[in-house]
């Protein structure tokens, strides 16, 4: 797992050859635009009633029934502290398939699917942010938009998301 992550990270970071492009799903959180590897996305659905889990962090909205599977839902707006966590009929949940786990993330909206070449992604400058920069693969530039490319798998499976047991056994 670790290796795989490192590999995919390197792939999109190595700016040398420039020709290699990857597809990203971009979504909006408040005023910001984020991009994640499209291969991690299982489906996109509307937000409906979740079952809250006691004593969970605020950004974990609860769990839903996704065709028989119990899937936790994370609100990235709360986690990243951007925008207003409103739930309207247009609120979107991106269901991510991260190897053995399925997780849903609430975002304001999904914008599109874009191709980004490695040379379009510049390294993240060091700065303090609510999101640990280690989960940011880089900043993509598309026309005059800035896309924050995040390593969603690493982020979701990290201990700070509290989605995985601390012991990491399961």
């Amino acid at each position: 797992m670790q290796q795989q992550r490192a590999f995919s990270g390197q792939e999109s970071r190595s700016g040398g050859e420039g020709g290699h492009a990857q597809e990203y799903l971009t979504f909006i959180l408040g005023p910001e635009e984020y991009a994640i590897d499209i291969l991690k996305v299982q489906e996109i659905r509307g937000y409906d009633a979740v079952t809250t889990i006691a004593n969970a962090p605020a950004f974990i909205k609860g769990v839903i029934n996704l065709r028989g599977t119990i899937v936790p839902i994370v609100d990235l707006r709360i986690k990243f502290n951007v925008g207003v966590a409103e739930y309207t009929p247009f609120t979107v949940v991106i269901i991510l398939n991260l190897g053995t786990r399925v997780v849903g993330v609430v975002v304001d909206s999904v914008s599109d699917v874009t191709m980004l070449r490695a040379d379009q992604i510049s390294p993240t400058p060091e700065f303090a942010a609510t999101v640990d920069t280690q989960y940011i693969l880089g900043l993509g530039t598309l026309d005059d938009r800035m896309l924050i490319v995040i390593d969603i798998e690493r982020l979701m499976l990290s201990s700070e998301m509290a989605l995985v047991d601390a012991t990491n056994e399961r």
Binding site: I53, A56, T69, I70, P72, R101, V102, L163, V164
Partner: peptide
């Protein structure tokens, strides 16, 4: 619950 989440 632990398949995609953790022990509660």
């Amino acid at each position: 619950l632990e398949a995609n989440y953790r022990r509660v």
